[in-house]
Structures are given as C-alpha cells and as structure tokens.
Write a protein that binds this DNA or RNA. Sequence first.
DNA 1: ATAGATGCAAATATTTTGCCGCCAG
DNA 2: CTGGCGGCAAAATATTTGCATCTAT
Lengths: 161, 161
Amino acid sequence: MSSTLAHRVSTGERINVEEAGHLQRELGVRRIRLTRQRRVVLQVMESASRHMDAEEILSLAQQIDAAITRVTVYRTLDLLKRHGLIDELDLLHLRGHRHYYESHGPRDHIHVACVGCGKVREVESPLYEELKQQISRDCAIEITVARTEIGGLCEDCRAKG
Amino acid sequence: MSSTLAHRVSTGERINVEEAGHLQRELGVRRIRLTRQRRVVLQVMESASRHMDAEEILSLAQQIDAAITRVTVYRTLDLLKRHGLIDELDLLHLRGHRHYYESHGPRDHIHVACVGCGKVREVESPLYEELKQQISRDCAIEITVARTEIGGLCEDCRAKG
DNA sequence: ATAGATGCAAATATTTTGCCGCCAG
DNA sequence: CTGGCGGCAAAATATTTGCATCTAT
C-alpha cells in the first residue's frame, strides 16, 4: 500500500528548495539594511545542504569573507528568527545542546533523526497538516510555528546492532 | 462535531499523572544506586506541576535538602535522560534558550504554547499516534522519542490585541 | 569492600551586551 | 547625513569535567 508521506531527502542531506536570494529579497521587502556581512550569512543559509549550528555558519561565512565575526552571525540569526525567516531546532539534543538553523520553505516538515548515526530526514505528511488543523481548532490557537522532531534507530543502524 | 483530541490541561499547569515513586521504581529495576540526593531530585520531577528548567529543579530540590548541588542536578537529569525517563524540551525557545524537563508518562503528548502569554497545554491525539506510525513505517525507523511543539496566539491573547 | 556518587572548583560552551567607530541608504 | 550595524572585549548564562572523598549496596 502506498504511503502518503512526501520525503524531501533520504540521506540526511537537505535538498535546497529555496530560490537563490530568497532571504535577501524578504529582508529587502521589509526595508532592512543589507550589509556586506548580512549578505554573506544569508547566502550561507540559503545554500545550506544541511542543518548548521552557529559555529558552522560562522566558519562557512568566513570562507566567503574572513572578516565576519561570531557576534554578527548571532545577531543576523536573531534578526532572521525575529522575522520568521528561519527556524531554530535542537534536533532532540542528539549531539549536545547546540542549536541548528534552517531557512524554511513554505511548508512545515518533520525532522526524523537517527539516534545512532545522526542522519536527519525531512518529511512532509498530510496527516501532519491535519493534526495541526485539529489542534488549532480545538485549542482555539492561531498557529504560527510548529516543530516536530522524531528520533529512533534507522534500518542501517539496527542492522549494525 | 466532537474533537478527537484529549487534553491533559487547559491552563498551562501540568496535571501530575505519574504515580508517586514511579521514577524511583524505574531506577530500582535497573539496579541504579538510589542516593539521598537522587531521591530528592526524583521526587521533585514526579511532583512537578509544570515544566522546569535545571535552575528551578535545583531550587526546589534545595528546599527539601539544602545540601544538593547544581552539579548533582545536572548529573541526575542526564541519568534520567539516558534511561529515557524524562524528556528535554525547549518549548520553542519562547523564553530564551533554557531547557525544560518533564518526566513522561506512557503516552506522547504535544506541547501547545502561546507565544503571547507563554501558557503551555499538553495535548494527546490519535492522529499523532497515526502520524508516528506512518513515519516509522515509511522511514523504516524504530521510534524511541517524539517531540512536537506548536506555538501560536491563544484566544485570550488575540482578544487583548 | 568497592564501584559508583557527590562536592568543589575550574574549565567549557554558548549566547548576549556595551560601547564606539563605520557604512548603507 | 545619520540611524542602524559590525567589531571588539567582556559579561552573562548554561553545562561539563577532574579529582578527592564519601556511601549505597
């Protein structure tokens, strides 16, 4: 029987679905100053092939422009968060207490992580949309953010014992 | 039409459904040493009426036994996490980057938080169980932990503007 | 008796802030 | 021009670790 799940990935790598310049454009619309440093961080976020923590974002940004500092990364991430352009995840604290960031597309997705190898899949499901609608209705809440993280052992890791 | 959601709470306060001594018993079964300090932390976790961060757990524990240190709290929380007896949440980072802990009952529940007033409801839903089953089947993963956090504006906060 | 816990202090890790010179608009 | 931004250094917060001592079993 066929499933109703839609997978964005199957290897833990993200497929980049945002158009290039997406974030940049959003900030432009909001009349937010586009500095050299911000452009670099946005570029890093947009071209991300996986979930990154602040440290990784910093080091990628510095590869493009060595002058960028950690503080600027944090401030820019905060800016993007406040405008709802990126999500902050902890991926079940599988690897310490880092926070991971992803620029998010139009649809919510579920993060499915293997506690063994750390691979993360992103999954969409109509059932999830239905669940959110039910909660919205039943709790009389206007949902602005939804996050689901699921952990377990993947097939490979079960095989390896 | 009636909803299929089951609410555990409606005010953000948790209703304590675990039997007293639940955690203590679990550790006993696993042949884990029950020290004076652990007993106190377990008692705090079991009688929690809301989600607590490490700081709050520490101060409640110290009200029972002033000699308990922060380090012991962290180590005990880590122990409980490793044994899957408590969950670590960030509640959408609504109030900074604190981590919140809760001893969990037999069923997963969804955390529904108001971004305005910070109230947190816990909700169960058959739809959620179904979703997890679907993911488990489709991703070929043996789910060990699932966490869903939903944020939005509650009725009261919408009314207040 | 002894493996494993605790306490203390210090080390790490992570994120935020004050202040001042600088740059995008 | 000028108000917001980035850099630097330091503070604040959060969590972990080494080691000596103590204790539950």
